[in-house]
């Protein structure tokens, strides 16, 4: 269980380009942060660095649990959901098979997968192969994983892009519920999130003018 995540003087370099530097950001229980910035400002890279997939050039990321500092590895393997541009589904498996795997893999149970499927109105799609789903339906299936397995830090990359207005409202409710339950959300967005969120603009943290 992660209670807070602290980024200190974080800098990320991709290729040979400095994306941003000097990022100080703390997110605590019940808070949401909307990362903004132009394309290529490092939103996705920041999310991946928080998930431990890429190594920051400088600075560090600390996770805090109820009893103090957590090992980053434990925190990530038990407390982090990363939802990127890709939704991690195998096109030829059924929606239910894929959801069940993802939920079990991230620490949920079959029962919680069923509950999430009902909540996101996915039951009708469960038996279909993933390739038959629309982009919006796939995104809902991916969101079901977040709901079904209890991980407190959600790292979302453009989570609402393929959703229509009605679904965005539903998704807003899910996020609000997650925050109310002590969760945290860090989301890279272009459009504003449907919930109250602090903004963090990565474009303002560019490298020194050259």
């Amino acid at each position: 269980m992660i209670c807070a995540v602290h980024m200190q003087n974080l800098a990320i370099i991709r290729g040979e380009r400095l994306l941003f530097q000097g990022l100080d950001l703390s997110v605590r229980k019940g808070e949401a942060v909307a990362l903004t910035g132009a394309n290529g400002s490092g939103k996705t890279s920041l999310l991946r660095a928080l998930a431990g997939l890429i190594r920051p050039h400088a600075g560090d990321v600390r996770f805090e649990g109820p009893q103090g500092v957590l090992e980053a590895e434990d925190a990530r393997s038990q407390g982090v959901h990363l939802l990127g541009h890709q939704d991690c589904f195998k096109a030829t498996r059924t929606a239910w098979e894929e959801l069940l795997f993802q939920v079990q893999w991230t620490g949920g149970t079959e029962a919680s997968a069923r509950a999430a499927s009902a909540k996101l109105d996915l039951d009708r799609l469960a038996g279909l192969e993933v390739r038959k789903l629309s982009a919006g339906q796939r995104r809902r299936l991916a969101l079901a994983r977040l709901v079904a397995s209890p991980r407190s830090l959600w790292l979302l990359d453009e989570p609402m892009a393929p959703l229509d207005t009605a679904r965005r409202a539903v998704f807003g409710d899910l996020m609000a519920e997650h925050l109310a339950g002590g969760g945290m959300i860090i989301a890279a967005v272009h459009d504003p999130l449907p919930i109250a969120a602090r903004a963090c603009d990565l474009s303002s943290l560019d490298g020194p003018a050259q």
């Binding site: 991946r48 998930a51 997939l53 393997s77 959901h81 990363l82 195998k90 096109a91 893999w105 991230t106």
Partner: peptide, 18 residues
């Protein structure tokens, strides 16, 4: 390769086992 292409490898890296 298939897990790399569709992003599943990200998910596998954040799983309960290393």
């Amino acid at each position: 390769e298939r897990d790399y292409e569709d992003g599943t490898l990200d998910l596998l890296a954040l799983g309960p086992v290393p």
